[in-house]
Every structure is written in structure tokens, then in C-alpha cells.
């Protein structure tokens, strides 16, 4: 373990509520993510993986432990988040949504124009730039969300089940697109998913979390070489690895069922 990791989590826990209603949602959790690494976290529903991402994003503080992020000292924001849904603003056009982070950072107009332009075209949104999100399909909205995060060129990209709300075919397509996008600039990514196939396709490393309270119970280095393409999904090695992770995860998912029965942990 080194202190130079881009993201270092030490003994992170998080509880919600107090007294009789206290819910121990997460941890203790230790993890390190290196600069330029694409790490996927998989785990059963309600295991606290989104909570962990929110702690990394600085949206909620941990109850215990320390999470540190190494900054490269540049102008780029430390982290940007791609949320699962509801996160792009219905009152802003596609273009204005993408521009949002740049506006907050007070990026000069001309530069912002160029960056928004590039970002729109990278995600195939140029022709919808003036449309409101309400008129777009789920896949297009999630592209807007990704463009909004990427345009700020964050040092760390945090993705919270970004494709969970999409149908299987669309998810497949966007996974391939994300793979290509990431391979162009290889920034540090923390990607939360409950989809093993997605984790293996995209990640350099897959961390498996236990049922609530979530801890890291397994770590898998993904051996497939970069640049990858969606075709590796069909290789026998891919299937073998998927079933290996599933063997570990299955007991956790099963363990999570009676414990979560009816009650939902704040995500």
C-alpha cells in the first residue's frame, strides 16, 4: 500500500440514522485506486457501494475513517460524477447541461464553447444540442450526463451505475462507447455496477463488496489487454472469470436478501 494512490480509503464506515433506527451501511472498507486505473465495484443491492462513491465524491462524509484523493495540482476539477438517473436538468438544453460544470468553474466563454462542441460530437449529441432532456430517450440522456462529466476533464470520474436504467441492448452499446472513450484519455475511473459483465469489460480491476455493511471481500485483476473491444465478452476466459466472481458474489447476494427484506438503505 502506498500513499501515492489517486484514491485511498482507510477504514471507511458510514452509518445512517441514529438510535434504534441506526443502519450500518458501509465498511470498514479499505481500498486504493491508482492514477489512470479503471476500477469497478460490484456488490449486492443495498451493500453501500453508492454510499462509498458519494463519500469519494464528497457528497457525504464518512462516519469513520479517512478517504484521501491525490490531486495533480492542475486546473482540472478533482472529481466529476455520472449519476444513475434524474441527474441532468430538465430545464436546460442538452448543450446547457453539458456546459453546466464549465459555467460553475467560470471557464472563459470561448474555451467553453470549444470544449462543449468537442464533447457533444464525441458523444454523438451534436444534432440534439438544442433539445430539452424531456424529449430524449434514456440512452441519449445518459450520454448527456457522461458528456457533462467528461467536459470538465476531471482527474477522477465517478460513475454510479450509469447504465442501470437502460435496457440491455442500449447498455451494451453504451458500454462499448465508454470503453472507447476511456481508452482515448485513460483517466482514473471508479465505476459502480451490479453487472459483472460490465465490470469485466470496462475495468482493470474489479472489487467485490459484501452484503450490508459493505466490505471488500474480493479483488480481481482483469487480464484482458488494452485496447479492448466489446468482442471479449464472447471469449471463454471472460466467461470463466465472470463465473469465478459470481461464485464469490452469490453468497453475498443471498445473504443480503433476508437482511434487506423490505427496508431500503439510503443510496
Amino acid at each position: 500500500m502506498s500513499d501515492e494512490a489517486k484514491i485511498a480509503a482507510r477504514g471507511i464506515t458510514r452509518t445512517f440514522g441514529a438510535g434504534a433506527g441506526l443502519v450500518h451501511a458501509l465498511g470498514p472498507l479499505d481500498a486504493e485506486i491508482e492514477s489512470g486505473e479503471f476500477v469497478c465495484i460490484v456488490g449486492p443491492s443495498g451493500c453501500g457501494k453508492s454510499t462509498f462513491l458519494r463519500i469519494v465524491a464528497g457528497l457525504i462524509p464518512p462516519s469513520e475513517g479517512v478517504l484521501s484523493l491525490g490531486s495533480d495540482g492542475g486546473q482540472a476539477p478533482l472529481a466529476a460524477v455520472v449519476f444513475q438517473d434524474y441527474s441532468i436538468f430538465p430545464w436546460k438544453t442538452v448543450e446547457a447541461n453539458v456546459r453546466f460544470g464549465l459555467d460553475l468553474l467560470r471557464v472563459p466563454r470561448h474555451e467553453a464553447d470549444t470544449r462543449v462542441e468537442r464533447s457533444l460530437s464525441r458523444l454523438g449529441l451534436t444534432e440534439f444540442r438544442k433539445a430539452y432532456p424531456g424529449t430524449l430517450s434514456g440512452g441519449m440522456r445518459q450520454r448527456v450526463s457522461i458528456a457533462r462529466a467528461l467536459v470538465t476533464e476531471p482527474q477522477v470520474l465517478l460513475m454510479d451505475e450509469p447504465f442501470a436504467a437502460l435496457d440491455a441492448q442500449l447498455r451494451h452499446l453504451l458500454q462499448d462507447e465508454l470503453l472507447e472513450l476511456w481508452q482515448e484519455d485513460r483517466r482514473t475511473v471508479l465505476f459502480i455496477t451490479h453487472n459483472l459483465d460490465e465490470a469485466l469489460l470496462l475495468g482493470d480491476r474489479v472489487l467485490v463488496m459484501s452484503a450490508r455493511p459493505g466490505r471488500i471481500v474480493g479483488e480481481f485483476k482483469v487480464p484482458f489487454e488494452r485496447p479492448r473491444s466489446g468482442d471479449i465478452r464472447r471469449s471463454p476466459e471472460f466467461a470463466a472469470m465472470e463465473s469465478e466472481i459470481w461464485d464469490l458474489l452469490r453468497s453475498e447476494v443471498a445473504a443480503g436478501i433476508p437482511a434487506t427484506g423490505g427496508t431500503k438503505v439510503p443510496a
Binding site: R54, A57, G58, L59, P77, A79, A80, V81, F83, D85, Y86, S87, I88, F89, W91, K92, F100, G101, D103, L104, L105, R148, T152, L158
Partner: peptide
């Protein structure tokens, strides 16, 4: 106003005035 609109603003580091202008007023 759903948390889902406030959280992205916070994650991009919006201050009070920016949150007001970009999120609260239109929402």
C-alpha cells in the same frame, strides 16, 4: 426539489449563488 438535482450541483462544486441560479430557480 429532488436530491438528484442538488447532488450534481454539489459534486461540481456549486456555491450558494450558483445553486440558486442553476437549480433552485428553474426547478
Amino acid at each position: 426539489i429532488p436530491e438528484g438535482y442538488l447532488e450534481p450541483a454539489r459534486s461540481f462544486g456549486a456555491n450558494r449563488v450558483q445553486t440558486f441560479r442553476h437549480i433552485i430557480v428553474p426547478a
